[in-house]
Amino acid sequence: MSRAFSPKVVTANDLLTGEVVYLAADGRWSPRHADAELLTDEAEAELRLIEASAQEDRVVGVYLADARPGPRGPEPVHFRETFRTRGPSNYPHGKQAEGIPQT
């Protein structure tokens, strides 16, 4: 028996700006983690990863990151992913400066 699959989101960086983006259910790339599609099925997650990785004209560095459901949409689980939703801690740069909600 394999372990239970923990839910995932597909995330990447924007090709032109490098900004962190998330794959939404309608196939759009959003800068907001909460817009991401929460993938609860392993096979579905793998499929979405393959599809997303093919979008080389939009994104780079596509991968699956652990996430969990939250009141406004998926939320990150690991602190690294939390940092990616907002930007660095030493300056108000990145998403936190652009009024993008952190989750």
Binding site: N13, G18, E19, V60, G61, R84
Partner: peptide, 20 residues
């Protein structure tokens, strides 16, 4: 492709980091 481009950008000091 990114796979082809990546070594070229790295040779010129361009990395992809966490936020940019």
């Amino acid at each position: 492709t990114e796979e082809e481009f990546r070594p070229l950008r790295l040779m010129n000091g361009l990395y992809l980091q966490l936020h940019a």
